[in-house]
Amino acid sequence: MSRPITIVEVGPRDGLQNEKAILEPAVRADLVRRLEAAGARRIEAVSFVHPKYVPQMAGAEEVMAELARNGPHEAARSRIGLVLNGKGYDRALGTAVDEVNVAMSATDGFGLKNQGMGVDQQVSMLSDILTGRANAPPPPPSAVPLPLKGGGNGEPGAAPSLSATLSCVWGCPFDGEVSVDQVADLVGRIGELGVAEIALADTIGVADPWAVTKTVEAARRAAPEAVLRLHFHDTRNTGLANAWAGVEAGIDVLDASVGGIGGCPFAPGATGNIATEDLVYMLERAGFETGYDLDALITTARWIGEKIGRPAPSALSRAGGWPRG
């Protein structure tokens, strides 16, 4: 089982956004660097949301500016910015993010609470962003190098690549159960817009492995050309089991958060994500390739625990790996 699995590190965004501690942009940039040193090659670095609603994510531009001092652009590394709407997307374009992840919801209830839009309005918002991308003029020539963007392609001024994440795929704190057909219909609509990667998120941690399999199969039929990514929370201790089910169903891209920190401030009871180091341990023990340095991840998890003022909840940050070096 030498099959590679890509783990998108979401700790600097989804991890920190639900913590009580508010870290300065320089500290958040340091976290990104530490995670990249531990092997992260796709990393959700910032969120372009209003600081009034998510103060933990204030200063996204400052974080990206700090990271720009990190040396030359590396083609193998991609930094992602999350956006909720067109205004956030425009902000992201003013920075050196490599990817933009558009947050959406599988339900009207969560969409209205999280970003003030129902499902149909969110699809229209995504369509408008994609139309604007298609109609945007090429960047003007400049004697001054423009920020490097474009999903790691190294082209100055190129538009970042785009993905979409659907929240509350397996359950909504406001609308209750979410049917497979409801998710598949929305995935199909997004796939028809030409989005290359669609993430399915268990925002409140209610999924089980069998439900994951059913939803993945339905989503794949609905958008056969899109890459599917999975995002799990360990709220009810099923996160790793759900990740296993996704891998068994053929998924090659999973989100995880260092230390298992985080959650969603707009979803009551949505505690931490599955921990990157726990997921890496499980996959690599089985022979899958992740490209991460497990010891460096554990060290980073303990470090961020100190920064947020509480021990990271991940199992490996307490127990360490096995066998011990």
Rank of each mutant, 00 (worst) to 15 (best):
D175I: 00
N273S: 03
K20V: 12
Q56K: 03
M117I: 00
A199C: 15
E36P: 00
E61V: 08
I274L: 07
V8E: 08
V54M: 07
A75F: 08
L240F: 04
G109T: 11
H73C: 02
V212E: 01
T203P: 08
E197P: 06
E62Q: 15
V216P: 00
Q115G: 13
L297K: 03
M1R: 12
W170A: 07
R302A: 01
A40D: 09
W322A: 11
R77T: 14
E155G: 07
A134D: 01
R91Y: 13
A96W: 08
A207P: 01
K87Y: 14
G71F: 03
A65H: 13
A319I: 04
A38K: 02
T131V: 02
A68L: 10
T131C: 00
G59N: 09
Q182W: 05
A207D: 04
G94V: 04
E225K: 15
I308P: 03
A38C: 06
S142K: 10
G86C: 01
G191N: 11
I129K: 00
E155W: 07
I80N: 04
G246R: 02
W322E: 06
E155C: 10
S314N: 07
P137H: 06
M64F: 03
R285V: 10
A45F: 06
R34T: 05
G118F: 06
A226S: 13
G154M: 03
R236T: 08
V102F: 13
G116Y: 01
